[in-house]
Design a protein around this nucleic acid. Structure first.
Lengths: 133, 133
DNA sequence: GTTACTGCAAAGCTTTTGCATCCCT
DNA sequence: AGGGATGCAAAAGCTTTGCAGTAAC
């Protein structure tokens, strides 16, 4: 976890546990998910610490806060450019690594300075397709 | 508001007021926004009615629930295909009416059945650009 | 007359905050 | 040693729910 030893982030055991859980994690976990997992190793872990750590990481650009679930915030340690495919039934999310060349037509920019984009693809995952019968 | 007189939706004065507020509304209001506005005409209006109406409309496909703000849900009476350009500073949202031909590469679909997509463009609006100085 | 909606208040969830204590650097 | 982090509990927002009364159909 040496990659986090920088920019004034204090490395506490709790933070290391959170970082370890997030490292390479593709499940787009919520704070609750993170808390539940890390709590097994650190039973005294509190939600405040989870949120505090996530906010610190977000400020450093180490995690993305995803707003693709209307029930709760989700976090993604993959901060590289990518998009998401979301099951409209169970909310399972998979990454789409492709780069799409899309841009806002000049006449629709309303003088905004466009800095990026994120695509949400919607669909039904194999598990939920099976359940539909 | 005849266009809502269908599919078993009971038309109460409160619902009409909400529908009137939403009709053609491009501000992507939250439940709070809707409540605050409609309350002026119907001081006894309750949040339960606002949420109840929005849920009924959503089920009928008359409004979209947007998950582009991590603080609260926003609603959009424009259910036609369109995308959004969001100010990362003040969260103001404008519609992007263009159609983009993007699709998930077959090898990344993970057996999902893709049904649609929504693009969030991020940027800084003219008002916030001015404030940056 | 039925069935569905309203309003109110309380409850439920997620997220934030205050504060005393603790510990990483 | 000092400043930031932790843990706990309480609070704050947003959203949902239960229920009795009411109104649309």
């Amino acid at each position: 976890m040496e990659k986090y030893r920088d920019k004034g982030l204090k490395l506490t055991p709790q933070r290391l546990a959170i970082l370890e859980y997030l490292d390479g994690n593709k499940s787009h976990p919520s704070a609750e998910d993170i808390y539940a997992s890390v709590r097994q190793k650190y039973p005294t872990m509190s939600f405040a610490t989870v949120y505090n750590t996530l906010e610190a990481l977000r400020k450093k650009g180490k995690v993305l806060e995803l707003t693709i679930d209307d029930e709760r915030r989700r976090y993604d340690p993959d901060v590289s450019t990518h998009h998401h495919l979301i099951c409209t039934d169970c909310r399972k999310i998979v990454d789409i690594e492709d780069v799409f060349s899309i841009s806002v037509p000049e006449e629709q920019k309303c003088s905004y300075e466009v800095t990026g984009n994120h695509i949400e693809f919607y669909g039904v995952c194999p598990d939920c397709k099976g359940k539909e019968i």
